[in-house]
Computed example of a mutant assay.
Amino acid sequence: MILDIWKSIERKQFAPVYLLYGNEAFLINETKQLLTKHVLSEDEIDFNLSVFDLEETPIEAALEDVETLPFLGERKLVFLQNAFFLTAEKNKSKVEHEVSRLEAYLADPAPYSIVAITAPYEKLDERKKITKELKRKTTILEAKKLNEQELRVWVRERAAASNVQIEEAAINLLMEISGTNLMLLANEIEKLSLYAEEKLINTEMVEKLVAKSFEQNIFTLIDKILQRKIEPALTIYYELLRQNEEPIKILSVMAGQIRMLYQVKELVRQGYGQQKIASVLKVHPYRVKLALEKAGSFSEKELIRLIYQLAEADYQMKTGQAEKRLAIELILLKMGT
């Protein structure tokens, strides 16, 4: 749905009113940038782009501007931000909104104005009349986490926007290294596009150019441990130390990742599917997919043993019974046995 809305905007098929809500800020900002780019020319932005913060400005005052004719142009674009009156959440703003004025506008929107109402909140109050009216009469973009399929399409189209193609295997590796953070993925795709001499991003380029996050380095370290490849695991550990990462932080993330592998394995045993596991653990489904690929190769007994070993090392480090750097080195060696 999100990608369909973006394509319509790029084709200059605009809706009179958009409702952008959800806590994935990148998607809201991306949509606002697309609207600005395609609704107005560069010369028109200064005259026909208006932005109102509804925590500071009453909706009726903002709508006066919406209904004012554009200056030296065919259209005007108006962003109405932070529509807190659409939620049940408490807000510190003392501004009172005459929402009936917005209801009246929705019944007869100005033909020359494109309005985007943003509500950067996880949920809207569906009991409110104005919420129901907006959902019935506007084009809605729910800015939530993209699922794996949507994320793959988004990566391909993001690369295409930079006039490059990206191999499917390269998408897999990019998502494995960078995770599902859209801002981080966008930055990496932009960087890869600049180096794609043949207009094709492959796995070799991703491996060479994409910086691994701290969490990804730990994920790789855990992967090496579970494969009993202790020498590469130690190499990653020493590199993290050279980057001045704290041993206790390294241990904490290691424990968290192994604990998630165990939880995923246990939830699968109870009959949970990938989406349900993601909901229970409050992580992106793609992380669950990666965990499922790893957890299936190891018994619950092995994972529990690793959790206890890490807990013991944590206790010794925090009570001064073991030198921090050496404690993790020893536990990595022990895990290989």
Rank of each mutant, 00 (worst) to 15 (best):
R325D: 06
V264Y: 01
L184Q: 13
E266S: 14
Q270D: 13
L102K: 00
E157G: 05
N147Q: 06
N187D: 06
L226V: 08
G22Y: 01
I250K: 04
F298T: 07
E64Q: 13
D53G: 07
L290E: 03
E239K: 12
K92F: 05
K128G: 00
T68W: 08
E30N: 08
L226F: 14
L102M: 03
V155A: 10
R242Y: 10
R75P: 07
E103R: 10
G296S: 11
L102W: 01
L35T: 04
E89N: 12
K76F: 07
I28W: 00
D53Q: 09
Y21V: 01
I304M: 10
I248M: 12
F84M: 04
L310P: 01
Y105C: 09
L35K: 03
R305T: 10
I328K: 02
I230F: 02
K7N: 15
I5R: 04
I114N: 07
Y272H: 14
E312F: 04
V95D: 00
G179Q: 12
K12Y: 09
P70S: 10
F79S: 03
G179K: 10
R269Y: 13
H38T: 04
E30W: 05
Q81A: 11
I304T: 10
V115C: 09
Q321H: 12
F14P: 10
L35A: 06
G22F: 02
I304Y: 10
K224G: 02
G271T: 09
F71K: 05
I45H: 05
T68N: 13
K135Y: 02
K294T: 15
W154N: 02
E98I: 06
N91T: 14
K294R: 15
K32T: 07
Y112V: 08
A62L: 10
I59A: 02
Q149K: 15
H284W: 03
G296K: 14
L86K: 09
K92D: 15
A61N: 14
L80E: 00
K229S: 14
E197S: 13
Q263P: 02
N91S: 14
K92V: 08
R156F: 05
L80R: 02
L185A: 06
R269K: 15
M175H: 04
T87N: 05
K94C: 04
K135Q: 13
M317R: 07
L281D: 08
P232E: 10
Y112L: 06
L20R: 01
L80Q: 03
Q270M: 14
E302D: 11
V264G: 02
K132Y: 09
K94F: 04
A160Y: 05
K324S: 14
G22D: 03
T220S: 12
S178Q: 12
K94P: 06
P285A: 11
V95C: 04
I222L: 14
V155G: 05
I230Y: 01
R259M: 09
K289E: 13
T319W: 01
F71A: 08
I130V: 15
A211Y: 11
P16F: 03
A104V: 06
K334N: 11
T57N: 11
N23Q: 13
L281F: 09
N29Y: 06
K12A: 13
Q33T: 13
E190F: 11
E239A: 15
L281K: 10
F52N: 08
I28P: 00
I5L: 14
K301P: 04
K37R: 15
